[in-house]
Nucleic acid binder design. Structure first.
Length: 405
RNA sequence: GAGGGUGUAGCUCAGCUGGUAGAGCGGGGGACUGUGGAUCCCCAUGUCGCGGGUUCGAGUCCCGUCACCCUCCCCA
């Protein structure tokens, strides 16, 4: 007797009804992305750790405590990707995509890894589908992106509120940051210890703290929106106007900051009304491509959390009829033929491997919720027919397999 | 990283104040050898997550450990 293995903590198998939900989500998203004409890209699960450190931010929690980092045999520091954008940006530059078209719309799907404590809808390996748009600075791109997120949520029947904010740019954010730190210093005795520590390192995050006293302390804080430079303000106003015009409902949340450093201007989250977790999140990152050594290229995108959506989505109904073929007696040669004929007609067919009498076979057909039982006995074989039984009504008739439709 | 809960047959769980384990479902077999969707009957030797301790004796108490769930943190 050898020991039984378990998947490592936070890693799990996806199967059965969960997998049907998983597929429903990914295929729905892919379907919509097709209509938006996004192009797929597959990037490696492993990158140099620096790719994430430099993009997401050295001081962020993701990088500091949640990344799976390891060294390979030559001592290179590699990491399992904790999110999708960094790798796509790297690929965009490495493949010189900017020389091919004036702008690009890419999407990716795959596993991401974060060393976190598992919880409902949160695993160490989880899956995201994300989109990235490169080379468009104008606000209509932001609006279309938000519309895309909205379309996805509506298609999946997930009730979520779209929250948006603007984080400004190089021009206006430094001044705001300064003003915010000044404000936070004044109320620092009301902040939780994490925030006291955080206010100098990453002050914007304090706005997003969930601790009640912090929320209270931050209520009167100066808002980024009040500091936006003329261009950022105009951009933000246009995004909102376009959304209103499109009929996409949203709520402004001036404390929404996101935990990744690369965001500029528009940021957003779709928060489930049912569970109070973000299921879609993203925003603009106009400097990241440049910071990665590419040409200055405005960009924006978002990611959909598949496991989180799985908590909110119904398992899809089966959309085909199942024919359960029951060989009965020494008829396997004939039964195999029957199965082949039905499959050629496009039917979904399961050939029963179960042993036992007709009764047991029909019980199994029932349990598999087959729509039809196709009984193939010696009698049927002699006549070149099958007995087709409608499992719902119980009606049964003999037909030639070719005539089933 | 912090706090709380749980861990008993394949699954869902019951096992009171410690005396060495049960039910439902599923699965398998069968009076019926060609007919189902609550006909009947039979079938569970499971290291009670793992390791250690207390005790004459532990699933039942204590410690540790692992996993899962929940909250915080963080995030999709």
């Amino acid at each position: 007797m050898s020991k039984e293995f378990q998947a490592p903590r936070g890693f799990h198998d996806i199967l059965g009804s969960d997998l049907r939900k998983f597929r429903r989500i990914t295929s729905t998203v892919r379907d919509i992305l097709k209509r938006y004409n996004y192009e797929e890209i597959i990037t490696p699960v492993v990158e140099f750790a620096e790719v994430f450190e430099r993009s997401i931010g050295e001081t962020t929690d993701i990088v500091q405590k949640e990344m799976f980092v390891f060294t390979d045999r030559k001592g290179r520091r590699l990491a399992l990707r904790p999110e999708g954008t960094a790798g796509v940006v790297r690929a965009y530059i490495q493949n010189r995509l900017y020389t091919q078209k004036p702008y690009h719309k890419l999407f990716y799907e795959g596993p991401m890894f974060r060393y976190e404590r598992p919880q409902a809808g949160r695993y160490r390996q989880f899956h995201q589908i994300g989109v990235e748009v490169f080379g468009v600075a104008e606000p209509h791109a932001d609006a279309e992106l938000l519309k895309l997120a909205d379309d996805i949520l509506k298609a999946l029947n997930v009730r979520a509120t779209l929250e948006i904010n603007s984080l400004g740019c190089r021009v206006c954010r430094p001044a705001y940051r300064e003003a915010l730190v000044e404000y936070l210093n004044r109320v620092s005795d009301q902040l939780c210890k994490v925030c006291v520590d955080r206010k100098d390192r990453n002050p914007l995050r304090v706005l997003d703290c969930k601790v009640e006293t912090c929320k209270e302390a931050v209520k009167e804080a100066t808002k980024m929106v009040d500091f936006l430079c003329e261009e950022c303000r105009e951009h933000y106003e246009k995004v909102k106007a376009y959304l209103t015009n499109l009929g996409v409902s949203f709520r402004e949340n001036h404390n929404l900051v996101r935990g990744l450093d690369y965001y500029t201007r528009t940021v957003f989250e779709a928060v489930s009304e049912e569970l109070d977790v973000a299921v879609v999140a993203g925003g603009r990152y106009d400097y990241l491509v440049e910071e990665f050594g590419g040409p200055p290229t405005p960009a924006l995108g978002f990611a959909v959390g598949v496991e989180r959506l799985m908590l909110l989505v119904e398992e899809p109904e089966r959309d085909y009829e199942l024919y359960f073929v029951i060989p009965f007696g020494d008829v396997h040669a004939y039964a195999l033929k029957v199965v082949d004929v039905l499959r050629k007609k496009g039917k979904v067919v399961e050939l029963s491997y179960r042993k036992g009498g007709l009764r047991k076979q029909l019980e199994l057909a029932n349990r598999l919720s087959a729509d039809y039982a196709v009984i193939v006995g010696e009698e049927e074989m002699k006549e070149g027919v099958v007995s087709l039984k409608d499992m719902r009504t119980g009606e049964q008739r003999k037909v030639k397999p070719e005539e089933i439709d």
